[in-house]
Amino acid sequence: MSATRLLVLGVVRMYGKAHGYQVRRELLTWSADKWANIQPGSVYHALKKMTAEKLLEQVEVEPGESGPDRTAYRVTEAGETEFHVLLSHALSSGRHTTGAEMGAAITLMTTLPRKQVIGLLRHRVFQLETDVRSASLLAGQSDSWGQPAHIRELFRSWEMHAETSLSWLRQLIERLEAGEYVMADDPGRSFGQPPQ
């Protein structure tokens, strides 16, 4: 999965229709260039690629103020499905997502119902608990496998990262259960929801 793909779909979806500059500008306000390494070229590439894949459709071309024309895009039905699949996967899969993908998922989690997000995050907690146990076991037994002694530091690092992520995730779940943040099924408009 690509954080860029999820973020671009999420921003276009949020606006109802958006052009590349608008998507790029929105992502810059989220500092996605820093935590997800989103560059201007990757936004435009994602828009074109997802249009070719029928996840987005071109809806209009606006004259550019001082440059080229701006093409506006809208999320298709297939794009809506892809958005939900990518978001759910990024929230629930502890082992197969990057920090950028998790960052994208957290940014857009309010577009889903509260109970669904909590369930997806609990699945991620289960995976991280397994990772902590595995890393602890590996760190404690690495000498007996004929590995150099310093290799256990890799396992200790893995264990510490997993424990830190686990602690943060549990706290996030508690905050969500307590009603923090406006989610898709709450009264009012949640962040990232498409316009009516």
Rank of each mutant, 00 (worst) to 15 (best):
T130M: 11
A32I: 10
R124H: 02
A135T: 00
E153V: 13
A46V: 06
A3L: 01
Q58P: 11
E163I: 05
G188E: 08
E80S: 13
Q22G: 07
R152A: 02
L9P: 05
E174Q: 15
V11T: 08
T4M: 00
N37H: 08
I173E: 05
K115W: 09
M183P: 08
A46S: 14
A162F: 02
V11A: 10
T130S: 06
S134C: 09
K48P: 00
W158K: 02
M14H: 13
T164H: 13
E129C: 01
A105V: 11
R189V: 08
V11M: 06
A3S: 07
G64H: 04
Q58C: 09
I106C: 06
R175P: 01
G192D: 09
V132Q: 05
I106N: 11
Q116E: 11
Q193K: 02
S66P: 00
E60N: 11
L176Y: 04
S167E: 15
T76L: 00
R170L: 11
G67A: 14
P40V: 01
Y15W: 12
A139Y: 00
A178P: 02
H84D: 11
H161T: 14
Q196A: 15
L112Q: 12
L120V: 05
D33E: 02
A32C: 03
T4A: 15
S167M: 11
T164K: 10
Q58I: 08
Q196M: 14
R114T: 04
M109S: 14
V132G: 09
G99T: 14
P194M: 03
L28Q: 01
L87D: 02
V12R: 00
M14V: 01
L172F: 06
S165D: 10
L56C: 03
Q22F: 01
I118M: 11
I106S: 11
H89E: 13
D143Q: 04
T111P: 06
P195Y: 01
I151D: 10
L7V: 03
K34H: 04
T164Q: 13
R122Y: 12
E153H: 05
T71W: 10
H123V: 10
R95H: 10
D186W: 12
W35K: 01
P40Y: 03
T111E: 00
A162Q: 02
L91H: 03
R25P: 01
L9K: 10
Q193M: 13
H96L: 01
L27E: 05
L55S: 00
R70A: 13
F191A: 05
T111L: 11
R124M: 01
S165M: 14
S165N: 03
